[in-house]
């Protein structure tokens, strides 16, 4: 069943008007699938992740539907959404380092959280300890304050807490950004392990690091300025991208064996358009080397090959 997102629109209310951070996003994540969500900052990755679990005060659900395992998620209704949080949809936040209350022992905090959801800590304590063993955290962490844990330990602790109720969908938002490279790999592998053991059914892995996404994701979705640019199997995105933005994104990654002293690493000139008043037609037009007259019209997402969607007239 998995997740089906249909023409989702989420706007930010600001004093200068509506910022169209998500403007008609459609995609699906299947059972057991890890979807890597990539794109530069401001493209709507985090907004999408937040929309699926808890919108902040400035976000408005302006249109579209989200369906999880056949049931519609009331994403615009904070109160009704509570029933799905943690047990159906869960999140490992960007700020895992400071996600735990600094003045409460971790075990107590987990107990408070579970009891607040009407669950008994005692019934889940055994499972919690098994999972701590699995991520190689000593059981004593439950009796410590977050301050006493290292960054990597906090990250793993939050991963265990977030997945404790075996959610159907897990949103992992930039969880490796604050970690060093060797820890990044371990965290990514743990996430795959959680999927393989069935702790989580499907995962949306949000990151700006395409090379890390490639290692763990089944599918990669590239977003640009609040819209989906391209979505395909991970190897297809990296080896045979069709959208010009994806191509530029991939070609701006450093390659092994190339000396960049000789050849300058290519970037993408320009910056994304303002989402306060986005241009009509293709939003990548101004930066696109292939842009032509047709691009003044908005390109639809076309399935060029099975499970390979591209929103570009030239694809």
């Amino acid at each position: 069943m998995g997740l089906r997102v249909n023409d989702l629109k989420v706007y930010y209310q600001t004093l200068r008007g509506e910022v169209k951070a998500l403007d008609g996003v459609t995609f699906a994540v299947g059972d057991g699938e890890i979807l890597g969500l990539a794109g530069e900052s401001g493209c709507g990755k985090t907004t999408l992740g937040k929309s699926l679990i808890r919108m902040d005060g400035r976000m408005r659900h302006t249109g579209g539907t989200v369906e999880l395992d056949g049931a519609e998620l009331p994403i615009g209704d904070d109160r009704r959404m509570n029933r799905f949080r943690f047990s159906e949809v869960s999140i490992i936040p960007q700020y895992a380092m400071s996600a735990m209350n600094p003045t409460r022992k971790i075990g107590k905090m987990v107990a408070d959280l579970l009891e607040s959801r009407g669950l008994r800590y005692r019934n889940l304590a055994g499972e919690l300890e098994r999972r701590l063993d699995l991520v190689e955290l000593p059981r004593e962490v439950l009796g410590s304050y977050p301050l006493e844990l290292s960054g990597g330990m906090k990250q793993r602790m939050v991963m265990v807490i977030s997945t404790l109720l075996d959610p159907s969908l897990l949103i992992a938002d930039e969880i490796t950004s604050a970690l060093d490279v060797s820890t990044q790999k371990a965290v990514a592998r743990t996430l795959v392990g959680f999927r393989d053991r069935g702790f989580v059914r499907s995962v949306i892995f949000i990151t700006h690091d395409i090379s890390l996404t490639y290692q763990i994701a089944d599918t990669i979705m590239v977003m640009y300025a609040g819209k989906v640019a391209e979505k395909a199997r991970a190897d297809v995105i990296v080896n045979a991208p069709r959208h010009p933005y994806t191509k530029l994104l991939i070609s701006s990654l450093p390659e092994v064996g190339v000396r960049y002293a000789d050849r300058k690493l290519a970037g993408i000139p320009g910056s994304p358009p303002s989402l306060l008043d986005p241009p009509t037609g293709c939003r990548f037009r101004d930066r696109c080397p292939l842009a032509h007259d047709k691009c003044a019209e908005e390109p639809p997402a076309v399935e060029v090959e099975p499970d390979h969607f591209v929103a570009c007239w030239k694809a």
Partner: peptide, 28 residues
């Protein structure tokens, strides 16, 4: 508005719990 309050709310904790934590930390 701190991170731990956001995290708890994202996991659907009742506002009573979040407010209790916030009060205790704000008293310090």
């Amino acid at each position: 508005e701190s991170d731990y309050a956001n995290y708890l709310q994202a996991l659907g904790a009742r506002s009573r719990l979040v407010r209790g934590y916030a009060f205790r930390n704000a008293v310090l």
